[in-house]
């Protein structure tokens, strides 16, 4: 069985990408399972989708714990433990990342033993469209797996995107084929995983859940504003950056309108953005009266920050 996990953010087209790959397998005669996996979080939050494909009926269900291939459409997710990108990777699992960072660097950063591939995409793929990157990733995955033909891939894109019109379909087929072509040197790198043996699986480590008093055992929170421990800043792909030379200390606009209470006003009247929680909606950028807030690609801002601190 092939077990493939896609990682991206809500709104980046991971569900569509997984469905395209699922349909492509289906056209090749495989039994298939594909599904997206959501939490309560919304657009921008880390999410994953998975595909299983086998010539025999598939009995496994739910999240893939031991993937043969992990595809990362947004490389900012790799270092986020909660995103679970590296979960269950072993020495034969392939990690495919759409990234400007080279493979050696990812090997150092992730410390995993299996093959790591960075997806080189030609300029013909519209990189500003996150959905297009997802489709290119699906195409790349198809080639890495090695049992999916270009015809099956094309048909899969048509299946999934036909309601959006022919122009969109054509653009997406191009992106899928670009991903497919980019992985031609690595065709068939991904192999089918074998099921884990029943013997030697170890104990499930069950515990007798203790009876506990209601203060512990009721679904209640006994403190205020605990939500600040949730780093919703991880949802962001762009960040607002305040140019203080242009800020006129109006005191209220950016802070008032920020839905997430991620902009506070310091004692000196300067607004300060809390990047741990800013989701990157950019309402502040649009509302700032003197246009003192700029939208910057998160990866560039983070890189600039690293340079600044280095």
């Amino acid at each position: 069985m092939y077990r493939i996990r896609f990682h991206g953010r809500g709104g980046q087209g991971m569900k569509t990408a997984s469905r395209v790959l699922g349909s492509a397998f289906f056209h090749e005669g495989f039994e298939v399972q594909d599904a997206p996996r959501y939490g309560a979080e919304r657009r921008g939050a880390p999410m994953n989708a998975y595909v299983r494909a086998d010539r025999a009926p598939i009995y496994e269900r739910g999240i893939i714990l031991r993937p043969d291939l992990v595809i990362v459409a947004d490389d900012t997710l790799v270092p986020i433990p909660a995103a679970g990108v590296l979960q269950g990777l072993d020495n034969r699992s392939v990690l495919l990342i759409d990234s400007a960072t080279p493979e050696d660097e990812w090997r150092k950063r992730t410390n995993i033993g299996g093959p790591i591939l960075v997806l080189p995409l030609p300029d013909t793929v519209d990189r500003s469209s996150l959905a297009m990157i997802g489709i290119a990733c699906a195409g790349a995955a198809a080639r890495l797996i090695g049992v999916i033909s270009e015809d099956a891939l094309e048909q899969a894109v048509r299946d999934e995107l036909a309601p959006l019109g022919e122009a969109v379909v054509e653009k997406n087929i191009q992106a899928a084929m670009a991903g497919y072509a980019a992985m031609s040197d690595h065709a068939g790198t991904v192999s089918e995983g074998v099921p884990a043996a029943a013997s030697g699986a170890g104990s499930p480590d069950w515990v007798d859940v203790p009876v506990e008093e209601v203060r512990l055992s009721g679904p209640a929170i006994h403190a205020g504003a605990t939500s600040v421990e949730v780093r919703t800043g991880l949802w962001r792909t762009f960040r607002p950056v305040i140019h203080y030379d242009r800020c006129n200390h109006c005191n209220w606009v950016c802070s008032s309108f920020c839905p997430d209470n991620a902009i506070s006003v310091a004692e000196d009247g300067r607004p300060v953005i809390d990047y741990d929680h800013c989701k990157g909606c950019m309402i502040c950028v649009v509302q700032c009266p003197p246009h003192a807030i700029e939208s910057v690609l998160e990866v560039e801002a983070a890189a600039a920050e690293r340079r600044g601190s280095a």
Partner: peptide, 14 residues
């Protein structure tokens, strides 16, 4: 101590 009172925040049945 699980009841709602000013100054004693409880988020119940979350």
């Amino acid at each position: 101590g699980t009841e709602f009172r000013a100054g004693k925040p409880v988020s119940q049945a979350v």
